[in-house]
Simulated scan of single mutants.
Amino acid sequence: MRVAVGSDDVYSIARFLVDYLRKKGFEVKLVGALATGKPYPWPDVGFEVGSMVARGEVDYGIVICYTGTGVSIAANKIKGVRAALVTDARNAEGARRWNDANVLALSARLTSEELAKEIVDAFFNTREIDSSEVENIEKLKTIDNA
């Protein structure tokens, strides 16, 4: 599976996640500070990762900034992106199951390594969309075209 991971700074949790994903066999593409080694504007991180997902260059994206809010807002500006800011594994599972999220947003401030593993595992292990939410997810696609 191909995943773009972007961060606005070289946070230890961002580096940890890149290593964790690679060890699990993911093809990881680096964006922002993870690619440059220096601070990078959070709107650009969200936009670049979201664009990669929307164009099909990667299957999913992960965006990280201090709170996770800015990168999630920026990613959601891209047509076809459903970025979810999550703080635990249950929310990550729900974001996939009920919202068909394709970009995971994380807070560098709040996310420990153990929590990051739980969140990422829940997000990527949830493959089935709740059938009761298909209509709502289709509504999002209609909104994208409005």
Rank of each mutant, 00 (worst) to 15 (best):
D8L: 10
D8Y: 11
D8T: 11
D8N: 14
D9V: 01
V10M: 05
Y11I: 09
S12K: 15
I13Y: 09
A14L: 02
A14G: 04
A14K: 08
R15L: 14
R15E: 15
F16R: 06
L17Q: 06
L17N: 13
Y20F: 12
Y20I: 11
L21M: 15
L21H: 02
K23A: 08
K23C: 00
K23P: 04
K24P: 01
V28T: 07
V31W: 11
G32N: 00
L34P: 04
L34F: 02
L34Q: 09
T36E: 12
G37T: 14
K38W: 13
P39H: 15
Y40P: 13
P41M: 09
V45I: 08
G46W: 05
G46E: 14
G46T: 05
G46H: 12
F47L: 15
F47I: 08
E48D: 15
G50Y: 06
A54S: 14
D59W: 02
D59E: 14
Y60S: 14
V63G: 05
V63K: 01
I64D: 06
C65E: 02
C65K: 02
Y66M: 12
G68Q: 01
G68L: 08
G70S: 08
S72H: 11
I73W: 09
I73K: 07
A74R: 00
N76W: 00
N76K: 00
K77D: 07
G80M: 05
G80V: 09
A84R: 02
V86Y: 00
T87M: 11
A89C: 04
A89Q: 01
R90F: 13
R90S: 10
N91P: 00
A92R: 04
A92I: 11
A92D: 04
E93N: 08
A95E: 11
R96I: 09
R97G: 13
W98N: 07
W98Y: 15
W98D: 14
D100G: 02
A101Y: 03
V103E: 07
A105F: 09
A105K: 10
A105P: 06
L110W: 13
T111E: 00
E113C: 08
L115Y: 03
L115W: 04
A116G: 08
I119M: 13
I119S: 10
D121W: 00
D121P: 10
A122L: 04
A122M: 01
F123G: 11
F124H: 15
T126L: 10
T126I: 08
E128S: 12
I129P: 13
I129C: 03
I129A: 10
D130I: 07
D130Y: 02
S131M: 04
S132A: 11
E133V: 06
V134G: 01
V134S: 06
N136C: 03
N136F: 08
N136Q: 06
K139G: 01
L140R: 09
K141P: 04
T142K: 14
